[in-house]
């Protein structure tokens, strides 16, 4: 791993921290599982760190970082295609390109999520956040909600659609989307 001087390290961290959520969401849109996102992000972060000195205009970090993430996510998918169920490369390329083009709108949707989570009944909010908690076993959350695992997945899907509808309606009212 390349060594950055202290000033560059701080600058790197500023840029990376400011963009990490967007890059992570971008990667998630291209890989099958949430846990896959971490694998790809680890590789993305390492490449960005190693090559940061080579980035001449640091203000271009965001565009550059998304390019690296695109490359690494597609490379990861190619690598996994032999033994994992992943989408075909031409579909992933289309998704990656459209994902980059629509990132501002998708970013606004992510930011609007907090407000929509607040509108959920407290119990539903707790359950969905439990289901997404790191390291959670979905069987445990389903059991706490007194649903079968299959029933819980159905419920999760309904809540996600409800949240998606909410963020889009809110952004439409604000004239964002």
């Amino acid at each position: 791993m390349g060594e950055l001087d202290e000033g560059s390290q701080i600058l790197f961290l500023q840029h990376f921290t400011a963009n990490e959520a967007g890059i992570r969401a971008f990667v998630r849109r291209l890989v099958p599982l949430r846990s896959d996102t971490n694998d790809v992000m680890q590789q993305v972060a390492m490449v960005l760190w190693k090559k940061f000195e080579q980035l001449e205009v640091k203000d271009d970090f965001r565009k550059w970082a998304f390019g690296v993430a695109r490359y690494e996510a597609l490379a990861w998918s190619r690598d996994k295609a032999r033994d994992r169920l992943v989408l075909a490369e031409d579909v992933l390329v289309a998704l990656a390109d459209e994902s980059l083009a629509t990132e501002p709108a998708l970013s606004a949707q992510r930011d609007a999520l907090d407000g929509c989570l607040e509108k959920l009944a407290a119990e539903h909010r707790r359950m969905i956040l439990d289901a997404y908690s790191p390291g959670v076993r979905i069987q445990d959350v389903a059991s706490r909600s007194q649903r079968s695992v299959a029933g819980f997945y159905q419920w999760l899907h309904r809540i996600r659609l409800q949240l998606l509808d909410c963020v889009k309606r809110n952004l439409a009212v604000e004239g964002v989307s």
Binding site: R24, R29, R34, T37, E98, L106, L117, L163
Partner: peptide, 27 residues
Amino acid sequence: ALRNDAELRYTFLEYLNLDAALTASAA
């Protein structure tokens, strides 16, 4: 279906994007 339907691709992206945002909120 994704290969042939741009609207479906955008919906797919929105759904996975929400998934990413929920993961971030839960963390």
